[in-house]
């Protein structure tokens, strides 16, 4: 495993820690899109189907379990926890996320590395992850006061994607058989979705003003 991949995984983990900190400690999910969190839970459930069948490394297994457990517990908190769920900004989180699922599934049936159940589910999870941030970005645009933890959460998620691209470039030159163009194309699309957010995030940080996305 190269440094970019490890750094990518760590920023991904950090984003989850930041979000859990907000939800678990501050008991608030203000500014967080439940739709995006539901999509992530579905992404991990579809992608990690091989968890108990195909062993890669202890690191891999532990990280998969962490992402599965954290994504489902975040959804549980936002839906069921009696204090947290009251802070959920339901009125602004209106993205029709169900309409993302079927096209991703159709695309996975058409474009996959192998036409098997697990490979189709893997491709589906890759496509769905690429667009899962959309409801969150829409909600951020509609949020007047984006708090620091929410901004940091999205920033770390985006950083994870950038680092994964660097990881693929590195692997491409160091591992002759490493060609996963499905994840590359989807990953680049996913990273581009953050471009706008990154611009405003860095500007707000540079000018030391509160983060706000133009509508």
């Amino acid at each position: 495993m190269n440094a970019f991949r490890l750094a990518g995984d760590m920023t991904h983990l950090l984003s989850v820690v930041v979000l859990l900190l907000k939800i678990h400690t501050i008991k608030s999910c203000a500014g967080i899109s439940l739709k995006t969190q539901e999509l992530y839970a579905l992404v991990f459930a579809a992608r990690y189907l091989d968890l108990f069948i195909h062993f890669i490394s202890l690191y891999n297994t532990v990280m998969k379990l962490v992402f599965l457990a954290s994504s489902f517990s975040i959804v549980w908190y936002m839906r069921r926890h009696k204090i947290v769920r009251r802070t959920y900004d339901k009125d602004h989180d209106t993205f029709r996320h169900h309409f993302l699922v079927l096209p991703c599934l159709a695309l996975a049936l058409l474009i996959n590395e192998r036409f098997t159940f697990r490979e189709v589910m893997w491709a589906f999870s890759i496509y769905l992850e690429a667009v899962a941030i959309l409801p969150q970005l829409v909600l951020l645009q509609r949020t007047r006061n984006i708090d620091n933890l929410t901004g940091q959460y999205v920033f770390f998620l985006g950083a994870y994607r950038v680092l994964y691209i660097l990881n693929w470039i590195y692997r491409y030159f160091t591992e002759p058989h490493f060609v996963h163009w499905i994840s590359w194309v989807a990953g680049i699309v996913q990273t581009l979705l953050y471009a706008d957010f990154f611009y405003y995030y860095i500007m707000s940080w540079k000018n030391n003003v509160k983060l706000e996305l133009p509508a």
Binding site: R5, D9, H12, R47, D50, H54, I56, S57, N60, M63, K64, F67, E113, R114, E119, W122, Y164, N167, H180, S183
Partner: peptide
Amino acid sequence: NADTVEHDEL
């Protein structure tokens, strides 16, 4: 194994 695709990333 030629029948499985290796996905070693998360």
